[in-house]
Computed example of a mutant assay.
Amino acid sequence: MNFDKANAALDSVYTAETPEALAKAYAEWAASYDSETASLGYILPFLITSWVARHVPASEGPLLDAGCGTGLSGPSLKALGYGDIGGLDLSDDMLKIAGSRNAYSELKKAMLGGPLPWPDGHFRVVFSTGVFTIGHAPASGLHELVRITKSGGHAIFTVRDQVFESGGFQAVFDELERAKRWRLVEQSPWFRCYAIGDPDALVRTFVFEVL
Rank of each mutant, 00 (worst) to 15 (best):
D65Y: 07
R147C: 05
A58T: 11
G130Q: 04
G74E: 03
G87L: 06
P57V: 01
V126T: 13
G74C: 02
D120A: 04
P75N: 15
E60K: 15
W118P: 00
I148Y: 00
G81R: 06
H143T: 11
G114D: 12
L112K: 01
V56W: 01
R54M: 13
G113V: 08
I97E: 15
G121M: 09
K108D: 01
L63K: 07
G99M: 10
L72G: 01
I85Y: 00
D65A: 09
S76N: 10
Y104Q: 07
E144V: 04
I134K: 11
P117T: 00
T129F: 00
L80D: 02
G71E: 06
S140F: 12
T70W: 03
G141F: 03
K109L: 13
Y82S: 08
H136F: 09
L88N: 02
S105R: 13
S50C: 12
S105H: 09
D84E: 14
W51M: 05
A139K: 12
S59L: 05
R124T: 12
D65P: 10
H143P: 02
M94E: 03
H55S: 01
L80S: 10
L145Q: 03
Y104M: 02
H136V: 11
S105G: 14
K109H: 07
L95W: 13
D89N: 05
A58C: 11
G114M: 14
R124S: 09
L90C: 02
Y82A: 04
K150Q: 13
N102Y: 09
G83A: 15
R124C: 14
S100R: 09
T129D: 02
Y82I: 00
F127K: 07
G141C: 06
P62Y: 00
G113T: 08
E144C: 05
P119D: 14
Y104L: 05
P75R: 06
P115T: 11
N102S: 15
G81Y: 13
G135H: 11
A58R: 15
L80Y: 02
L112E: 04
A110F: 08
L116T: 07
G86D: 13
I134Y: 10
G74N: 11
V125T: 15
L77A: 05
D65F: 03
P138E: 01
P117A: 12
G71N: 03
G113K: 03
V131D: 03
G87I: 02
S128G: 12
M111T: 13
T70A: 14
L77M: 13
W51N: 06
K78L: 14
K96L: 10
L80E: 02
E106T: 06
L142E: 00
M94A: 15
P115L: 15
G130L: 04
T70G: 10
G67F: 01
G135D: 03
S151E: 13
S100G: 12
A110W: 11
E144G: 08
T133F: 10
G69S: 06
V125H: 01
S50M: 11
P119T: 07
G61W: 01
S73Y: 06
I97K: 01
P117M: 11
P119R: 12
M94Q: 07
G99W: 00
S50Q: 15
D93K: 06
P115C: 06
S151T: 07
G135C: 06
V125W: 03
L88G: 02
G121K: 07
I97H: 04
L88M: 12
R124Q: 14
S105I: 13
